[in-house]
Amino acid sequence: MSETPSPGRNEKTPPAPWAAVPGGEREKTTSLKKPGDPEPILEAKNLTFSHGTTRVVNDVSLKFFPGRHYVLAGPNGAGKSTLLDLLSHLKEPGSGGIMVFGKNINSHGAPELAKLLALAPQNFQFNFSFTVREIVSLGRRPYLGRWGRLDDEDRRIVEKAIDLLNLRKLAGKLVTTLSGGEAQRVVLARTIAQSTPIVLLDEPTASLDVAQALDLMARVRTLTGEENTLVVTVTHDLHLAAVFADEMVFLKKGSLVAAGPLLETMTPDLLGEVFEAKARVRRDDFTGGLNISFKH
């Protein structure tokens, strides 16, 4: 993807966080990317994916930089989850490709890729009575031998992931006895224990209450801020995204509508276009983010 910085910008401004916007007439906005990290660690190039004759993802190109939290948003059927599946190599794109750390995703072996990229899926189910700690430990799998023996370092990472998701009191409990929100946190802890520089979250707050969702998003901020992790989240919760996202990616009917820093992309016009509703966006001193309202 050739990158042409917008004219008239500051010399030091890094390249835009996405490669191309279909239609091209919308002005490209610029990422507030940190210096010293000039290369995207995850990149989608002209991705296309079809179910039968229906195009679910249509020529999407995006660049993702470390230490940022990207939120993929859009109405139902926008192709958000399919895009996440493509990025996590669960689906093969019809055309186009994905680069992970500058290498095509297909040229990373599956075990190698598992050390770079982790996914917390939305639909999960615990069928057997493992304990919470056992499930979180399974996240260490890419670093273990065939018999899955954990060394001290692995166990320390598992305990940290348990603490990070506030699961300390549940650590010995059977996962089959947990509530939906607790189970969701276990899945996230499992993903964190995988210690990857790229973390993909599919509707992570779907079964959480307000306090848990806020708590989770604060943990994500720790990941991106302290660990320099790249986090890509698919969510329906625009209100949460408006507070916690660094970058927004808006999709509609499989096509990229806009991508860029939260403050520049989350505008009434764009929200109106993507979600087909009247929108109002205000700076919110209370949360430090944006406040969004919709009406018919």
């Binding site: 996590s88 190599h89 890729l113 982790a118 996914l119 999960f124 899955g148």
Partner: peptide
């Protein structure tokens, strides 16, 4: 063991 987490989790864990 990993596969009891479901196919999506297992595949992204390198199985």
């Amino acid at each position: 063991n990993i596969m009891t987490l479901g196919l999506r989790s297992a595949e992204t864990l390198g199985v």
